[in-house]
Design a protein around this nucleic acid. Structure first.
Length: 473
RNA sequence: GCUCCCAUCGUCUAGCGGUCUAGGACGUCGCCCUCUCACGGCGAAAACACCGGUUCGAGUCCGGUUGGGAGUGCCA
């Protein structure tokens, strides 16, 4: 066997785990599992200004909810700053990097000047070959890598193929800040190396960074892990993902009532395909996932398709499990506490009994909860407009007419109720719908619900007859 | 501006020179089922961005145009 596969997910804790990050994590997770390797989690918190513990927690919470697991404890990049600085100094000692005494102001000016003259905004290398004795007093230097001036840097990318960058476009970028902390470029390569990462899978926005990182790897004489850059996810309008559409934290998807399994399935198919396979269990996607199947163009996030998939998984999930999902979701939605208060053995059993009818009609857990509303409402019911319309004079008359037969039922079961209602409809010369709809309005307050005979049975004789009586009056 | 990447139905995609009168899925529109809404079943409309090459033959290869995207920080 060759060396074991090690992947990593390396988010920066400056916000929640957004959908693009979630997909990157999923791909890394899948790739590692596919190759019997492991995925590591590294928190890129070297930006002390913007990194927060709340964001770290949100990322871990998001990954956990999505069912993505990693090996060992999350690694804090910041805590490895000493090691990064050591490598930077080593590079200077090797003559592969140098101290730069330019101030931030000088650099900004340099960039603006270049821009104004239509030139690429690059560092001019003014300290590249200067002796340290020329250093101005009182200026803390940063360390810059000596990037090759000529030739080209070639990246063999698992998704993008061979990508070539002219070295003249890559400047001597900073690897260690003047305050002694590492920049992303250095920290990433040192950590990936030390962690034994063999395959990097990350967003397309890092493609050009690969060229810079290759320069550091080469300077150090280290072998660069294999890289694969996956295209970014765009919003439905093709523009960058904004908060309006998909750039929500995964916890937002949880609150919208999506199932982790559905989100995983949706995400894996966004930018990756294996023939015509659309619905993939986690085991199936693990067995099938490969870099070759990843497309090279950015894809748009489509909530409608996610919903369809979610509905499919809801229907496929066993009733008890679904109920568990619903109960857990209560912690994350506004109406949660109120519903939780109404949840007891009886309503729980009712909900379970109603589940087959409920889950067929819901695309999200939220819709499922909404559909179960009739179980939690109490008399007198509030009727929505359509229900109200159903309960006109004719509707009320019909209800009043079936009520006695219903009340006389020896056994309160769906089949028995159905038989009585059908008999009545036939006798009265009415289509079944003419009787069923008023019953539905009376018992649920709405014009749509699971099959009405099931609804009445689950409600229980007393409650059902009470509601019908209320509406008939 | 410069560098790099991308381009098949509205969307996600299959396609890896002939089997493509371009397939699947979501969505849309019909029809069926039916106590409502769904589910399910059947069917329909819907795409190779454009222009040049290469080739006996191009959605598939090459170049250009146009259109998207990313990068260009002492952010990651």
């Amino acid at each position: 066997m060759s060396t074991p596969v090690v992947t990593r997910f390396a988010p920066s804790p400056t916000g929640f785990l957004h959908i693009g990050g979630a997909r990157t994590a999923l791909f890394n997770w899948l790739y590692a599992r596919r190759h019997n390797g492991k995925m590591l989690l590294r928190i890129e918190d070297t930006d002390r200004e913007r990194s927060t513990q709340a964001a770290v927690d949100a990322i871990i919470d998001g990954l956990t909810w999505l069912g993505l697991t990693w090996e060992g404890a999350p690694i804090s990049q910041f805590q490895r700053a000493g090691r990064h600085a050591e490598v930077a100094r080593q590079l200077v000692a090797m003559g592969k990097a140098y101290y730069c005494y330019c101030t931030a102001e000088e650099l900004t000016e340099m960039r603006e000047h270049a821009k104004a003259n239509g030139l690429p905004p690059r560092y001019n290398g003014q300290w590249r070959d200067r002796d340290a004795s020329e250093a101005p007093a009182g200026v803390a230097p940063s360390i810059r890598i000596k990037a090759p001036l000529e030739g080209e840097t070639v990246i063999e990318d698992g998704v993008q193929g061979t990508v070539t960058f002219p070295n003249k476009d890559l400047d001597d970028f900073i690897i260690l800040r003047s305050d002694g902390t590492p920049t992303y470029m250095l920290a990433v390569i040192v950590d990936d190396h030390d962690m034994g990462v063999t395959q990097i899978i990350r967003g397309d926005d890092h493609l050009t960074n690969s060229a810079r990182q290759k320069i550091i790897y080469d300077a150090l004489g280290w072998e660069m892990p294999k890289v694969a850059h996956i295209p970014l996810i765009h919003g439905p309008d093709g523009a960058k993902l904004s908060k309006r559409h998909g750039a929500l934290g995964v916890e937002a998807y949880r609150a919208m009532g999506y199932l982790p399994v559905a989100l995983r399935n949706y995400l894996v198919r966004l930018g990756w395909a294996h023939g015509d396979a659309e619905v993939l269990s986690t085991d199936e996607m693990t067995a099938l996932f490969d870099l070759e199947g990843i497309g090279r163009s950015p894809s748009r996030f489509d909530f409608v398709k996610l919903e369809n998939l979610n509905g499919l998984y809801i229907r496929q999930t066993p009733d008890e499990e679904l109920l568990d999902h619903v109960v857990k979701l209560l912690d994350y939605i506004p109406q949660g506490p109120e519903l939780r208060a109404k949840l007891n053995d009886k309503t729980r059993a009712q909900m379970l009994a109603a589940m087959p009818g409920l889950k067929e009609r819901a695309k999200t857990l939220l819709e499922l909860i909404d559909g179960a509303g009739f179980l939690f409402s109490s008399r007198p019911l509030a009727y929505d407009d359509k229900a109200q319309a159903l309960l006109d004079a004719a509707g009320k008359a019909t209800l009043a007419a079936v009520l006695p037969a219903l009340a006389a039922l020896p056994e309160w079961k769906a089949e028995a109720i159905e038989a009585v209602v059908r008999d009545y409809a036939t006798a009265a010369g009415l289509k079944l719908g003419k009787v069923a709809q008023p019953l539905r309005a009376a018992s649920t307050g709405r014009a749509m619900s699971p099959p009405i005979f099931d609804v009445l049975a689950i409600l229980g004789r007393e409650e059902a007859l009470g509601r019908i009586g209320d509406a008939a009056a």
